[in-house]
């Protein structure tokens, strides 16, 4: 219980910290709205040619676009969440300060990232989504149950997303530099999460593979749950499994890193 309050405080701090970047938030809302509009027209053109691509109707494709814009910053799909700070702290040796604290490194950063995600959802994600809902026809459920299920998948998606980025950040203990890792995170994140095209629409064996990779837990699962395209329990199980595997891997790498690897700088 005592440590619950600690991580709650860390999450609140993460939320408040991102809340201080007002200009960045406003710019983000604008960008996500503009991108949403561009993508919607692209998708509509595509779905005109290929109706029911990936099993989605036009309204569903539109909904998918706006969900993507809403979750883009929330799930730090192209990076830029807690892992960015963590990489910097490892690189400069500032991590020393985190290590001598009586707190769990992974939980600490997870809590901070959840706080960040919540802020970016409310501050940056909701507005573009509302904009989309007002100006474009969407396929949104009218009962409450899918929305509740959606919230659960969102939480799990946040954890999976964090777990991927945490692992990536830890690599800086060995690489001493986060540039390459950040680029890899960005490309894999955008492509394998289905930011470009829903993963449902990927054909053949390639499609089969991308749909079971952990990135599928981020945007595809919440979207399918919200639009009733998949059984929520199947989605939870898929996400939870990846969360457990990736967090455990993170833990393993973390203990190797802190045992073997050296804290930089005097």
């Amino acid at each position: 219980m005592g440590s619950g309050r600690l991580y709650l405080a860390v999450a609140v701090g993460g939320f408040r910290r991102y809340a201080t970047y007002r200009a960045a938030t406003a710019a983000g809302v604008f960008t996500n709205t503009v991108f949403g509009v561009i993508l919607v027209y692209t998708y509509l053109a595509l779905w005109d040619e290929k109706p029911h691509l990936g099993g989605y109707g036009q309204a569903q494709a539109v909904t998918y676009v706006w969900l993507g814009q809403c979750l883009y910053a929330t799930l730090a799909i192209q990076g830029g969440g807690a892992e960015k700070d963590l990489m910097e702290r490892i690189r400069t040796g500032e991590i020393a300060v985190d290590l001598y604290r009586p707190a769990d490194l992974q939980l600490w950063w997870l809590a901070g990232d959840v706080g960040r995600a919540l802020f970016q959802m409310l501050g940056r994600g909701v507005l573009p989504f509302l904009f989309g809902a007002v100006f474009f026809p969407m396929a949104l459920p009218t009962e409450i149950t899918p929305w509740l299920a959606f919230v659960v998948t969102l939480l799990l998606a946040t954890v999976v997303s964090f777990a991927i980025r945490y692992l990536a950040a830890l690599s800086v203990f060995w690489l001493m530099d986060g540039m390459g890792v950040n680029q890899a995170l960005m490309i894999t994140g955008i492509f394998f999460s289905g930011m470009v095209l829903p993963l449902n629409a990927f054909p053949g064996a390639f499609g089969e593979i991308v749909r079971v990779l952990p990135w599928a837990a981020q945007l595809q699962m919440p979207a399918d749950v919200l639009m009733g395209e998949t059984d929520p329990w199947r989605a939870y199980a898929f996400q939870a499994a990846w969360a457990v595997v990736l967090l455990a891997a993170g833990r393993l790498v973390q203990s190797a890193a802190t045992r073997r690897v050296v804290v930089q700088g005097g």
């Binding site: 701090g13 910290r17 201080t20 500032e94 020393a96 005097g266």
Partner: peptide, 12 residues
């Protein structure tokens, strides 16, 4: 206390 580092939350 590491004089060249801080344990404080930078933005808060």
């Amino acid at each position: 206390v590491f004089g060249q580092r801080t344990t404080l939350w930078w933005d808060l």
